[in-house]
Nucleic acid binder design. Structure first.
Lengths: 148, 148
DNA sequence: GGAAGTTGTTTGTATATACAAGTAATTTGC
DNA sequence: GCAAATTACTTGTATATACAAACAACTTCC
């Protein structure tokens, strides 16, 4: 009779060693923490900064576009926008299609981005160090298919 | 007088193009979604699977160790354990130090892992494809410093 | 031009995540 | 051997995240 127990153990060992999701999620926590720590004095998190930057680039941002660009669920974005709206960083702009709740940066949002840039630089520098050349290249390669 | 406005735009453009956190977080969402979708029929998410696998490997797992290994905040783990305990996948094991709430897989937890392995294999395959050789290598390189 | 289908967003619910503060147990220093 | 410091975890609070379902507005098709 085969030893089912150690067979399972071996497979579990393989998951522990090889699982891509484990490493991706771990690195995501570490990297997010670096940026959030740097941004904390400004009262903004990197998740929000991402959306603000996207809005700045799009000028007039449609949620659907931001969701596609960032691969975000629309319900997630909806609630993030709520928070940023209440902080005065973005404002809703009614458009032609009454279904879309397009939005854009307010001047307060723009000022926030400006003030956040130095902190972003510092975090970016630390993240670079942490990932190393290999990690950075791999990240770009892997994320490449989701550009713009 | 320098054109402050476009200078800011250029910097924002740089954040949009280069920000490591944006890409890491985007990839994390995509990869997590692949595993969660594959695991959905089993009623477990990859975040929980990670902890169950760690518990399986440690045999008797101390929360502090799991937090260190996965770079998780202890409050996060505390609540995740609560959910997995209520599902009967883990059980608390009182130990020498009354502060530590060590835990281990129950047999139900072990059976869950066994049933989840094929779904994990499928998700792992798709994640490999998505990241490509470069992405996989970079991920390993970057996560290397956090091994075990 | 109206019914049926599609699309864009929000709301309900659940999990994951972290920081700050609280609590309880252990360890250290005297 | 006790007070102070430290450690290990939990609880309070807030954000991020996604799926499912609801809703409203647009589009298609006849």
């Amino acid at each position: 009779m085969p030893d089912k127990s150690s067979n399972l153990d071996a497979k579990i060992d393989r998951v522990a060693r090889e699982c891509i999701a484990v490493r991706m999620r771990l690195l995501n926590r570490v990297i997010t923490n670096i940026y959030d720590t740097a941004l904390r004095p400004l009262g903004v998190k990197v998740s929000q900064l991402n959306v603000l930057v996207a809005a700045a680039k799009l000028q007039l941002a449609r949620p659907q576009d931001v969701c596609r660009i960032l691969q975000l669920d629309s319900s997630t974005l909806s609630r993030n926008l709520e928070r940023m709206k209440s902080r005065g960083w973005i404002q809703i702009v009614p458009g032609a299609d009454a279904r879309t709740q397009s939005f854009r940066l307010t001047s307060a949002g723009r000022r926030l981005l400006e003030r956040a840039l130095p902190a972003w630089e510092r975090a970016q520098g630390r993240a670079c160090e942490l990932l190393g050349e290999n990690g950075l290249g791999g990240l770009s390669a892997a994320a490449g298919s989701f550009n713009t």
